[in-house]
Design a protein around this nucleic acid. Structure first.
Length: 501
RNA sequence: CGGGGCGUAGCGUAGCCCGGUUAUCGCGCCUGGUUUGGGACCAGGAGGUCGCAAGUUCGAAUCUUGCCGCCCCGACCA
C-alpha cells in the first residue's frame, strides 16, 4: 500500500468546469456556502462562510493600509446629485448606473388596505444618489479639512458598500451592491500622489499574490479603460482558469480634477494657494470571485490557507461511544497544539453525518487540511492527513502533528501560487500578426502580448472583432520597436490583451 | 432591452400535450433504533396559497389571457 493516496473520485453535484464553466462557478459559490441569490435582482446574500473569507481578506488589507500610514473613516451612503455633477468625466462615467433616492417617506395606500405607496408630499428637493463610489462626497468634506501644507498628505480609507445598477450581474464578480474599500488621499505634489497610487498598487499586488496565492500583472490602463475622472489608472490583472482576465484591484492618480471640482486648495510654505493632488484606490468582494475561479476544481472550492476561514478540520472515526471517548481525548490534545501553533481548526464530531459525508463536505468548502483520527490511528500513533490542493492523503505520526500541519499549510499556500503562476505564464502568448492574434484569443485564451499603435480607435476595433480589450500596459514594460498587430502602424511596446470579466 | 430557460415542500423533481378521488419520487428535516476508515440503514412522522390574477368548466397544477419573479447568453461595466 502506497503511503500517499489520492482521494477517490467521488460523484458530486457540481457541474464540471469542462462542461459549463459559468455554471461550475455558480454551483461553487452556492454549494460551497459562500453566498446565495437574494430576493432583490442583482443583489446577493453573503453567507457566514463567505463573509468569514471576506473578513480575513479585509483584516489583512486593513493592516497593510495602516502600516502604510492610512486611517479609516466613514462617509455617507448618499451623495447629493449636484456633488456628483461637479467632476464632469466622473459624472458621465457613473450616471448610467446610479440608484436615485427621490422621496423620504411612505404612507398607507388609501385605495388598498395593507399596501404602502410613496408619499408624493415627501419628495426631496434634491435627489440623493446612492454612492457608486465616494469621490464626490469625500472631496466635499476634504475642502473643509485641508487648509495648509501641514494638513497634507491626507491618507484616508473607508470600508463600505456601494451600488452600481448593472444590467447584468454575477455572484461576487458583478453585483448591484458590493462591499469594498476605497482609499482617498490628498497630496501637495503630483509626484507624491503618483507615488501613493503606485504604492497602493504594490500593496494590492502583495496581498493578492501572497495571501490569495494569485499572481498578478501590474500595469496601467489605456485612456479608454481609465477610471472616470482619473489621469492615470493603475491595475493588477489576474488570469482565471478559463483563460479570461480579471481586474483584481485598481489605483488611480486623479491629478487635480477633484481638487478643482470641489475647490480644495492649500497654502504652501511660501504662502501660495495651490490645488491639491489626489488618488483613490479600491478592491472589492470581487476578489472572492477571483479566488474561487483561480484555484478551485471539480470537487469544490480550494482556498489558500492564509485566508481560509478554516485551515484545518478534524473528523473522528469510531465505533460506539467508548471509541468515541478515546478519539475525543486524543483530538483534544491535538486541537490544543494546533491552536497553540496559530492554526484555525474545527473538530467536527457532529453525529448527524458520517465521515465520508464530512470528507466530501469539507472538500466542497475548500478547507486546506483535513485530519482523520480513528482507533487504528491511535493504536499506531498516527493521524491521517489529507490536503485539499493535491487531493493526497497519508498517515503521519501524531507526535509533532501541529508542526507538520503548519509546514503543510505553508506548502499548500506556495503550491497554489506556483500552480497559478505556471498556468498564467503558460497563458501569455506573444503574437506578431493579426491572424496569430485572432487565433490566440479565440483558441488559446489568456493574455496576448502584441504591438499596438496607441490609438483608441484601434483598441475599439480590436474589441469589436475579438471581444479582447487591452488589460494593461505592464509597469516597467520593455520598449521594443514593432508594428501594430491591427493597423500596421509603428509601435514602441507590446501591451497585454485578453477577454475579461 | 433582445434571445433562451425555469417557476409544484428547504433543495432537486414527476404529473401538464390528452382537465377528474387524498399532487409523485428522491435528498434533506423530526422521533426511535442500529451504525460510523470516502456521501449508512430500518421503522415511523412532519412539511404544499402547484409564482400571481382573471377567465373557460360541474371540476384547473393541467386549457386561455394577462402579469410577476429569477437564472443563463448578448449589448454596458469593477
Amino acid at each position: 500500500m502506497p503511503s500517499i493516496q489520492k482521494f477517490p473520485d467521488m460523484g458530486n453535484e457540481l457541474t464540471s468546469r469542462s462542461v459549463d464553466y459559468a455554471q461550475w462557478y455558480n454551483d461553487l459559490i452556492l454549494k460551497g456556502g459562500l453566498a446565495d441569490y437574494s430576493a432583490v435582482r442583482g443583489c446577493m446574500v453573503i453567507k457566514p462562510y463567505g463573509y468569514a473569507l471576506w473578513e480575513n481578506m479585509k483584516d489583512e488589507l486593513d493592516r497593510m493600509f495602516k502600516e502604510t500610514g492610512h486611517v479609516n473613516a466613514y462617509f455617507p451612503l448618499f451623495v447629493p446629485k449636484s456633488f456628483l455633477e461637479k467632476e464632469e468625466g466622473h459624472a458621465e462615467g457613473f450616471a448610467k448606473e446610479c440608484a436615485v433616492v427621490t422621496h423620504y417617506r411612505l404612507k398607507a395606500d388609501p385605495n388598498q388596505k395593507g399596501k404602502l405607496i410613496v408619499d408624493p408630499e415627501a419628495k426631496l428637493e434634491e435627489e440623493l444618489i446612492v454612492r457608486p463610489t465616494s469621490e464626490a462626497i469625500i472631496w466635499n468634506a476634504y475642502k473643509d479639512w485641508i487648509q495648509s501644507y501641514r494638513d497634507l498628505p491626507l491618507l484616508i480609507n473607508q470600508w463600505a458598500n456601494v451600488v452600481r445598477w448593472e444590467m447584468r450581474t454575477r455572484l461576487f464578480l458583478r453585483t448591484a451592491e458590493f462591499l469594498w474599500q476605497e482609499g482617498h488621499t490628498a497630496h501637495a505634489t503630483s509626484e507624491e500622489a503618483i507615488e501613493e497610487a503606485e504604492k497602493m498598487l504594490h500593496v494590492y499586488a502583495d496581498f493578492v499574490e501572497n495571501y490569495m496565492a494569485l499572481p498578478v500583472i501590474k500595469g496601467v490602463k489605456t485612456p479608454n479603460e481609465r477610471f472616470a475622472g482619473a489621469l492615470e489608472t493603475y491595475c493588477i490583472e489576474a488570469l482565471m482558469q478559463d483563460g479570461k482576465a480579471l481586474q483584481a484591484g485598481t489605483s488611480h492618480f486623479l491629478g487635480q480634477n477633484f481638487a478643482k471640482a470641489f475647490d480644495v486648495k492649500y497654502l504652501t510654505k511660501e504662502n501660495k494657494q495651490e490645488f491639491v493632488w489626489a488618488t483613490s484606490w479600491g478592491v472589492s468582494t470581487r476578489l472572492i470571485g477571483a479566488l474561487v475561479m483561480a484555484h478551485s476544481d471539480d470537487e469544490g472550492l480550494v482556498l489558500p490557507p492564509k485566508i481560509a476561514p478554516l485551515q484545518a478540520v478534524i473528523v473522528p472515526i469510531y465505533k460506539g461511544q467508548e471509541q468515541k471517548a478515546l478519539v475525543d481525548e486524543k483530538v483534544h490534545g491535538i486541537m490544543a497544539s494546533l491552536k497553540a501553533a496559530g492554526i484555525s481548526v474545527k473538530y467536527d464530531d457532529s453525529d448527524n453525518a458520517r465521515p465520508g459525508w464530512k470528507f466530501a463536505e469539507y472538500e466542497m468548502k475548500g478547507v486546506p487540511v483535513r485530519v482523520a483520527i480513528g482507533p487504528k490511528d491511535i493504536e499506531n500513533g498516527v493521524v491521517e492527513i489529507a490536503r485539499r490542493d493535491t487531493k493526497e492523503k497519508k498517515s503521519v505520526p501524531s507526535e509533532g502533528v501541529a508542526e507538520y500541519i503548519k509546514a503543510l499549510l505553508d506548502e499548500i499556500q506556495q503550491n497554489l501560487y506556483s500552480r497559478a503562476l505556471a498556468f498564467r505564464d503558460a497563458s501569455i502568448t506573444e503574437v506578431n500578426s493579426w491572424d496569430e492574434f485572432k487565433k490566440a484569443i479565440s483558441e488559446k485564451g489568456g493574455f496576448v502580448s502584441a504591438h499596438w499603435d496607441g490609438t483608441g480607435e484601434t483598441e475599439e476595433k480590436i474589441k469589436e472583432e475579438t471581444k479582447a480589450t487591452i488589460r494593461c500596459i505592464p509597469l516597467n514594460n520593455k520598449l521594443e520597436s514593432g508594428t501594430c498587430v491591427f493597423s500596421g502602424k509603428p509601435s514602441q511596446q507590446r501591451v497585454l490583451f485578453a477577454q475579461a470579466y
